[in-house]
Nucleic acid binder design. Sequence first.
DNA 1: CCGCTGCTCAAGTTGACGCTTGATAAAGCG
DNA 2: CGCTTTATCAAGCGTCAACTTGAGCAGCGG
Lengths: 115, 115
Amino acid sequence: MAITVDDERLDAMFAALADRTRRDIVARLSRGDATVTELAAPYAMSMQAVSQHIGVLERCGLVSRGRHRQSRPCRLEPEALEAAVSWMERSRRLWTERMDRLETHLAQLQDGERR
Amino acid sequence: MAITVDDERLDAMFAALADRTRRDIVARLSRGDATVTELAAPYAMSMQAVSQHIGVLERCGLVSRGRHRQSRPCRLEPEALEAAVSWMERSRRLWTERMDRLETHLAQLQDGERR
DNA sequence: CCGCTGCTCAAGTTGACGCTTGATAAAGCG
DNA sequence: CGCTTTATCAAGCGTCAACTTGAGCAGCGG
């Protein structure tokens, strides 16, 4: 089933975004590509740790790493966010549709009473 | 700083949605309110576990629990999704804006060459 | 009042995660 | 060729999250 695959993708995506260091990395990459050392600079943690964070983002498809001389430039892949966004909007849509149906139903009931 | 508060909220939100059981619960609640026992029925785990999952969803503002007789009806609070959705769309917007600037820049360069 | 249902609380286990340090690789530079 | 830079791999450690079981509590029904 495609549903299960999607589930795994969403698991990885949301889990990746559940860490503020990784969200910060994504935010900074949305401003432009950067190397691991550049990305690691602001944080009070080792470059290895940052590299691991980037690995998580890469595994869920949010970031891709290239090669240029000794450095590995990181680039954001924003289409990957679609999966997560569309999941959320589906839930929201279903809920509002349900509320709309409920409203029209109540309106009909009131109509019936009035007659 | 408001940024930090938002960060905590996003931490909780994304972490909550990183579990497929919880996403499933959200999806089912988007179709209509339900009690804990009803929500727990489809899963091969104890009701306590499901109650804990609902607790996670409640703590990040996605779900609210009321009281009716012995049961605790759960309701989705879809506005809470806004925080997460808008974070994602901000990243995506920044990235596409950057790409647009890059394109126009390249176009200008080509213009210069052509003359 | 007693027992049942619906649910939460508390404690314990197990596995995963975030980060560390140390070792390794690969590409420039003296 | 050694030395530095840039980055990954690997092992270990502490913490947290997802379950479990067992107990406790509030409403309802005999």
